[in-house]
Design a protein around this nucleic acid. Structure first.
Length: 180
DNA sequence: CTTACGATTGCCT
DNA sequence: GGCAATCGTAAGG
């Protein structure tokens, strides 16, 4: 369960409020649909790694690879709340952006965390980080307590659009888009 | 080699 | 609600 978990890159940390699952050759909406030869090769690899892709030539979107080695799947991080490194995130996103929008939406979340294409394939350290985290270090800390959640269909895709594979924390103001 | 297309966002009307 | 921005991929010739 990624909802409520905290992803950290250097000094910036985000508590995840919205995710979407993408599978492999069975899911036409997935980048892994066409096999392990393309940009989504990391989705076929071992779990606990980042898959980063460039969306519309502008936005760096973050996924967590979740399936065993050899099986393709990843979870797109679509939104969350910046809980550490707010000044850095604010600087990256622009000073006019309200706090709750700093990491709301997949492109915004990637920008707040300073994700780049070269981060694709990076290993996510499990658990909390040392006091002074290395700028290039990624980590993922599971939620401490269970979180109320809801399911919806995915957003922004045309293929396999009916699959109910989007998961949100309904009460969280950092969820992007519709809440049903 | 050339062309078309997004797992999006923010600004414009 | 409409649409431009912008570039790595993937598909086509």
């Amino acid at each position: 369960m990624l909802l409520g978990a905290v992803i950290r890159h250097g000094e910036v940390a985000v508590r995840i409020s919205e995710v979407e699952a993408y599978l492999g050759p069975l899911d036409p909406a997935s980048h892994a649909f066409r096999g392990p030869g393309g940009r989504a090769a990391v989705m076929f690899g071992p779990p606990g790694r980042l898959y980063v892709y460039l969306s519309y030539g502008i936005h760096h979107c973050l996924n967590v690879v979740c399936s065993p080695d050899g099986v393709a799947s990843a979870v797109l991080l679509r939104g969350g709340e910046v809980i550490a490194g707010k000044e850095i995130a604010q600087q990256r996103r622009g000073l006019r952006v309200p706090a709750r929008r700093l990491a709301s939406g997949p492109g915004n979340l990637g920008q707040a965390l300073g994700a780049e294409l070269s981060d694709s394939g990076a290993l996510l350290t499990l658990g909390s980080q040392p006091l002074r985290p290395a700028a290039e270090l990624w980590s993922l800390e599971p939620a401490e307590t269970p979180t109320p959640w809801a399911v919806t269909t995915r957003i922004g895709i045309s293929k396999n659009a009916d699959a109910p594979w989007r998961f949100i924390i309904p009460s969280d103001p950092t969820v992007s888009g519709r809440r049903h």
